[in-house]
Amino acid sequence: MQPPSRRTFLALGLITLASACTGSPGGDPDGDVLPGNRRPGPDPDLAVRLRALAATDTLLAAYDSALAAPDARTALLQPLRAETAQHRAALAYGVPAASVPPTSAATTPAANATPTATTTPTAPATPATPATPATPAALAALAALERRTAQFRLAELGAARPPLARLLASVAAANTLHATALDPTDQGIDQPAATTAPKPDAPGTGSAPGTGSTPGTDSVPALQNALGAEHAAVYGYGVVGAHLSEDRPRADARTAHAAHQAQRDAWQRLLTTLGATPTPAAGGYQLPFPVTDAPAATRLAAHLETRLSAVYADLVAALPAAQRPTAATALRDCALRARRWGAPDTAFPGIPETVPTPTATPRP
């Protein structure tokens, strides 16, 4: 038998990469498991995973307490707890059972904390109180815990390798979605997305993906992909707005359109500063399905935001560690808008279970 060719190895590498990027969140998150399910050495993400598991266990305990309370809102709480259990399973993948700590509470991380070599964020805590009726105040307290947990996960992005950072960003978006479901007074975002993007390093000092503080030239393909997706979203929202007649949906469409224009402009500025030519918008885009009325326009808006969530989840893994929160925030905002437009809930926003179909393709 002839030894495998270099092309064969490259093909196998591409298959592994595709599995890591498009597979189930519970699958191998890093694509580095050797035959026999043996890793080449200690998992460098183990400490991050254990902290993430502790935070998730705190949430699970809070949900269990709420579900055991008199007049528990089971229909609301059980699906959220089930998704939290899915998060735990994905975060625990590959962690030795003996290493997983029991459910525990820790101190709440400082606002905007960032992991460093000397300070490590700690999981948010929930008081060990007896079950109380599911009053609006109790649900709001659970929503606040979800929000603190989301912020904790964002603070951990820089300490994780790219695949785990992608998963953490997705779970953080889910935590925010849970918070808005528990507390109707907090809808997550009401303003256009941030109009700024990470500033690049000085010429010749670009960072490799997953390291450093600012994007380097290695991040350009992922940034171009995000820009192209925003071009398609801006075009798509023009179609959406043209088919909505009621005031509130049209106002929501205008707000989303402005947010995507702002984010598009931010990526264009960043790419230009990096010395790359921003990908121009196409003259037109082929929509994924015909849009002739308001219901179809609403479905298109949900589709656009869902696909953009996937783009930004991938961008989290492509950007340097310190800049991942920029993409994670965009992922969160897209997931929140997708829900507002009626997209079905998912435990892992931005991480599709199967290979997604294109959002919109430029017309030939």
Rank of each mutant, 00 (worst) to 15 (best):
P3T: 08
I15F: 04
T16M: 11
G23R: 03
G23M: 07
S24A: 15
N37R: 07
D43T: 07
L46G: 06
L46D: 13
A55P: 03
T58N: 08
L60G: 12
A61V: 09
Y63C: 00
L67I: 11
A68I: 09
D71Q: 10
R73Y: 01
Q78P: 00
L80A: 12
A90M: 05
P101D: 12
S104G: 12
T107A: 14
A110Q: 10
A111C: 10
P115V: 13
P115Q: 08
A117M: 01
P133F: 10
A138E: 12
A143V: 09
L154A: 12
L157N: 03
L164C: 05
L167S: 02
A169H: 01
S170W: 02
N175L: 06
A179Y: 08
T180G: 06
A181C: 06
D186P: 00
G188I: 11
A193G: 10
T217A: 14
D218E: 15
A232H: 10
H243W: 10
A251Y: 01
Q263D: 14
D265N: 13
T273M: 10
A281M: 13
P288L: 08
Y312W: 11
D314T: 02
A317F: 00
L319R: 00
Q323S: 15
P325G: 12
D333C: 00
L336N: 03
R337W: 11
R339F: 07
P358W: 12
T359W: 03
